[in-house]
Write a protein that binds this DNA or RNA. Structure first.
Length: 340
DNA sequence: AGTATTTGACCTCA
DNA sequence: TGAGGTCAAATACT
């Protein structure tokens, strides 16, 4: 197989390295009396990293095939259609223009549930920093879609992006669509520049959102292998700002029935109609978002994962530098076997 | 001053 | 031509 010295190679190395590092972290974690949630989070990230690596490999393979088989048409890839993108970011990369690649980047969707504990927002760490660059009202959607890209896009040329949209059926769920994989090193994403507050957000190992079932994985126009079914946790560094500034206000403004029990007057600030007290919302949100059995989501994850044609733990642990004595035991490894 | 967010304008594509 | 996605200036925040 051919891996160019470009985006996919960086992304591949990044994902594998990240997976290995998180696995080591998990190994250390196993010897400590830390929370199951923390281990779950690490586990999900490992799975996510390897799934992404696999997708990148397959993408590269299919792209090579399509370029070899048909240099003239740009729709011949069986898995990742080649589209033309006149992005100004385009640079020549291993014979395939980055601008063309951009639209071909792996794309997958995850659905996560907002997780609030004790009325206190607990930031999620996914190992990456995201900067919001846009918000758009989507015609067929009740809630606006927020667009994020990697904070290190300029400095590292990392093209990873995601967009977040609240589910119409269940406003406690967020649909997060990722495109591209991070080519910035994980530490770059973990250590935020300057702001101590930001630093705190990012270093917190708590989970802001409850991981829910993975919706689907897809490339630009097909439903690919269930990439997302890997129980990925990489649904982004969703901070309080990400979710409550961008999404909850729209809930309020749209008079969402799920917030019917909330007082409009108490939600709306006297100064700006769209500003909402985060602490209040967090408290109230916790109140109506009381669906039972968080573990069921993990069960769904594992269920979908084990059904995945690509999810196969027969890969060599040696190959990724993981000690085979790594304690993948039932109680620690499989979330549904754990208890809080 | 540096960084993040907001938001209207612009671009791309179907 | 309209919808989705991105840009970039203005603004807010630290």
């Amino acid at each position: 197989m051919e891996i160019g010295n470009s985006w996919e190679q960086k992304a591949l190395v990044s994902e594998l390295t990240q997976g290995m590092e998180i696995a080591r972290k998990l190994k250390e974690d196993m010897s400590l009396p830390s929370s199951v949630n923390s281990r779950d989070s690490l586990l999900q990230r490992i799975l996510s990293s390897y799934d992404k690596a696999l997708l990148i490999l397959r993408w590269n393979e299919s792209m090579s095939n399509s370029l070899t088989m048909n240099q003239e048409t740009n729709t011949s890839s069986p898995h990742f259609p080649i589209l033309v993108d006149k992005s100004p970011l385009g640079e020549d990369a291993g014979g395939v223009h980055n601008s063309k690649k951009r639209k071909m980047m792996p794309k997958w969707t995850e659905r996560v549930r907002v997780k609030i504990k004790n009325g206190v927002e607990v930031p999620l760490e996914d190992g990456h920093n995201w900067r919001k660059y846009g918000q758009k009202d989507i015609l067929s959607a009740k809630y606006p879609r927020s667009y994020y890209r990697c904070t290190f896009r300029k400095r590292k040329g990392c093209l990873a992006t995601k967009h977040v949209q609240r589910s119409e059926e269940d406003p406690t769920m967020l649909d997060i669509t990722y495109r591209g994989s991070h080519t910035c090193k994980e530490n770059d994403g973990v250590v935020a520049p300057k702001s101590a507050d930001n630093d705190e957000k990012i270093h917190s190992n708590n989970i802001e959102f409850e991981h829910a079932q993975i919706l689907s994985a897809k490339t630009d126009n097909i439903t690919a292998h269930p990439f997302g079914a890997s129980s990925s946790t990489s649904f982004g560094c969703m901070t309080q700002d990400d979710n409550y500034h961008a999404l909850l206000p729209s809930l309020v403004l749209n008079n969402d029935p799920c917030l019917a029990t909330l007082s409009q007057t108490s939600l709306l600030s006297p100064n700006t109609p769209q500003s909402v007290s985060p602490s209040f919302l967090l408290h109230e949100f916790d109140g109506f978002c009381n669906k039972p059995c968080p573990e069921s989501h993990f069960a769904e994850i594992v269920s979908s994962t084990t059904n995945s044609p690509i999810f196969d733990f027969s890969f060599s642990l040696d190959a990724v530098g993981i000690d085979e004595s790594f304690p993948f035991n039932a109680s620690g490894f499989y979330p549904e076997c754990t208890s809080e």
